[in-house]
């Protein structure tokens, strides 16, 4: 029964991709690591998923800085004036 369950879950890509993300986050158990290892031996799609996930994380590191240097949205002038006024004349 245990072996049957192992084989059944080992070939599940939905579960394997979740395990890849747990691995990425350093939260994978040994048993899960073994399952994932066997799955990835056989599954090219999940190998791609794991690799692409790490590419996305790597590229994502620059997003906050790019929002700072080139903000995609602009706060309305009215809101800006309002805040500026409250900073320039506190307590009024």
């Amino acid at each position: 029964m245990k072996i049957y369950l192992f084989r059944k879950t080992v070939f599940d890509c939905k579960q394997a991709t979740l395990l890849s993300l747990k691995k990425e986050g350093g939260k994978i158990t040994i048993m899960e690591r073994v399952k994932l290892f066997y799955h990835l031996l056989y599954c090219v799609y999940c190998r791609r998923f794991e690799k692409q996930s790490s590419i996305i994380n790597h590229l994502g590191e620059g997003v906050i800085n790019s929002i700072f240097t080139d903000p995609p949205h602009t706060l309305s002038d009215k809101a800006k004036e309002n805040i500026q006024q409250q900073i320039d004349n506190p307590g009024q």
Binding site: P71, P72, T74, L75, K80, I83, I87
Partner: peptide
């Protein structure tokens, strides 16, 4: 406001 408003808003 000049430096950070659009960044924080985005």
């Amino acid at each position: 406001v000049k430096t950070y408003a659009d960044y924080l808003y985005s």
